[in-house]
């Protein structure tokens, strides 16, 4: 039987109150949003906070809207809401590709975008998606608001730059013209973590690639991205040759480890193949 260890519980009625509760308890408090990352960690006793600050009722953090050529997603938005969002689906197909294969429909009902990102599991899908999209994380603390590029959000496995007493409140994703995107994941069964996955974002200028973003999941890519492959693609003619080579470059710079989901060489093969497939699909959608 898995149950969390003893913990205190408080419910916040506003972001300000949540920040106040979190900073009062110092590093021993954790915000509780959907609970679908934190509660399993608490049941395994890998997380043992002294205080849970329940922010699940803070509707002010649950929204999806477009402003200043960005899609702005409140951190408390549920996976299911992001998957239901027409604007996300049309403008950022990579997001819907990923959301369709994150956990399962029941978990997506309650798991939140912010919670997934702050769990910072190396196999979590949105980290690579947001890295590929060069999104920005908005973090609020007692001292005010700060923004962090998605590619600098993670400090390591299960560790982010969000400090005790702070909350991730919003994700900002640039909406760029002439751009296509896609996410390709291999999983053993519905709801499982990725064996490996890759996301691609391509901005075209005629037949040439103006800009590229590549995100990699579960293959030990630093900051979940592949800057060498992106650099290779920039300015090049879009097509099979470029996409295949970019996949190989992405795989060379990844650093997968063998586990129950597969050996290292298989994951490296997937990093290359899935990057190429994602680029191909992103190109078709641009």
């Amino acid at each position: 039987m898995q149950v969390p260890t003893h913990v205190e519980y408080e419910r916040a009625s506003s972001v300000d109150e949540a920040l106040e509760m979190l900073s009062r308890a110092g590093g021993e408090a954790r915000p509780l949003a959907g609970g679908h990352s934190l509660i399993p960690m608490m049941k395994l006793r890998l997380a043992q906070p002294e205080l849970l600050v329940d922010i699940s009722g803070l509707t002010e953090l649950s929204y999806i809207n477009v402003a200043d050529a960005e899609l702005r997603v409140g951190a408390l938005t549920r996976h299911a809401q992001l998957l239901d969002s027409a604007v996300a689906g049309e403008r950022l197909p990579i997001v819907h590709d990923a959301e369709r294969v994150i956990a399962d429909p029941i978990v997506r009902n309650w798991g939140t975008i912010g919670g997934s990102l702050c769990q910072a599991d190396p196999s979590e899908d949105l980290s690579a998606v947001l890295a590929a999209l060069r999104a920005t994380a908005v973090i609020r603390g007692a001292g005010g608001v700060r923004t962090v590029p998605a590619r600098e959000f993670h400090a390591g496995p299960y560790e982010t730059v969000v400090e005790p007493g702070e909350l991730l409140v919003e994700l900002r994703i640039p909406l760029t013209a002439n751009t296509g995107s896609a996410y390709e994941k291999v999983e053993r069964r519905v709801g499982d973590w990725s064996v490996a996955a890759a996301g691609a974002v391509l901005t075209l200028a005629g037949e040439l690639i103006e800009d590229a973003g590549i995100g990699l999941t579960a293959v030990g890519a630093p900051h979940f991205c592949a800057p060498e492959a992106e650099e290779f693609l920039r300015g090049r003619r879009a097509g099979e040759e470029a996409f295949t080579t970019a996949g190989q470059i992405a795989a060379e710079h990844s650093n997968p480890v063998a586990d129950q989901r597969g050996p290292e060489d298989y994951k490296r093969h997937l990093a290359a193949e899935l990057t190429t497939r994602a680029l191909r699909k992103a190109f078709e959608r641009a």
Partner: peptide, 24 residues
């Protein structure tokens, strides 16, 4: 959170109730 035998509705939305606190 894998098997779904514990699914109930919380505020009319299905949830795996082994992954929610009663307090919530």
């Amino acid at each position: 959170s894998n098997c779904g035998a514990c699914v109930v509705w919380l505020d009319r939305t299905p949830v795996k109730s082994c992954t929610a606190l009663a307090a919530m």
